[in-house]
Amino acid sequence: MKALTILNYQWKDLIRGKWIFGYALIYLLITDALIRFGGAGPKALLSISNVMLLLIPLVGMIYGALYLYQSREFTELLLAQPLNRKTLFWGLYGGLAVPLSAAFILGTLLPMLYNGMFFGEQIASILLLLGLGLILTLLFTGIGFWLGLAFFEDRIKGLGFALVGWLFLAVLYDGLVLLTIFVLGDYPIEKPMLALTMLNPIDLARITVLLEFDISALMGYTGAVFNRFFGSFYGMITAVTSMLIWLALPLYGATKRFRKMDF
C-alpha cells in the first residue's frame, strides 16, 4: 500500500517533468517513419529493434542513476518515516521503470496499431519485440539504480560509469568479440564465445531478435554459433532465460546495497 503511495507521487512528478512524453514520442516518430518508408514487413520490425537495442540501455542506465540523485531529498524524507527500506526501494524503482516501459511500449505500439501492422501475421514477432524491450528497460534501469547507489555521493562518477557501461555493452563488446575470434580463430572457441555472448544482455536480446526473424546473414558470429548450438527454438529459450537471470542481478545488488546504506 505504501509503495503505491510512493509510486503515485513519483508518477505525478515524472508527468510534471514532461520528458517522459518526449521519450515516448521518439519511439512513436521512429516507428511511424520506419513503417512509412520501409513498409509494414519484418524489415521495419528489425529496424525498430535495432533502435531499441541502442536507446533503451542508454536511457535506462543514465536516467536510472540520474533519477536516484534527483530523488535524494525524497528518499531522505521517507527514510525517517515508519517505512521499510524494501518498500521504499521498490517504490522508487517502480516510479521510474514502469513509466519508462510504458513509454516504450505505447510509443512503439501506437503506429503499429494505426498502420494495421499489429493484427497481421507478425503479431508473435511484435509481442516478442515488446517483451524484449520491457525486459531491457527493467534490466538497465536496475543497472542505473545500482550505479547510482554505488556512487551516491559522487554523481559525476555514477553517470560516467553509466555512460561508459553503455558504450561498452552496446558498441565495444561486439568489436571485442570479433577481435577475439580474429586472434584465436584457429582454436575451438565456439563454447567460450557462447559464454561471452551470454555475458552481455544487449547481445542476448539482439540474438533473440535475429533468431526470431531467422536472418542468418545478419546474425554475426555469435548468432550463428547460437543458432547452430541450440537451434532456433532452444536458442531463443536459452537467450531469454539468460536475460531474466541478468535482470535479477542488478536488482538484487541494488536492493542489497540500499538496505545497508547510510544516509
Binding site: 512528478d13 510534471r16 530523488s71 535524494r72 531529498e73 525524497f74 531522505e76 524524507l77 525517517a80 518515516q81 515508519p82 517505512l83 521499510n84 527500506r85
Partner: peptide, 20 residues
C-alpha cells in the same frame, strides 16, 4: 527494524524536501 519509527518525530539539521 522500521515499525518503531511510528513513535518518533524527527527534525533534521539540514531540512531537504522534494523541491516540486
Amino acid at each position: 527494524r522500521w515499525e518503531y519509527r511510528e513513535k518518533i518525530g524527527y527534525m533534521p539539521q539540514v531540512a531537504r524536501y522534494p523541491e516540486n
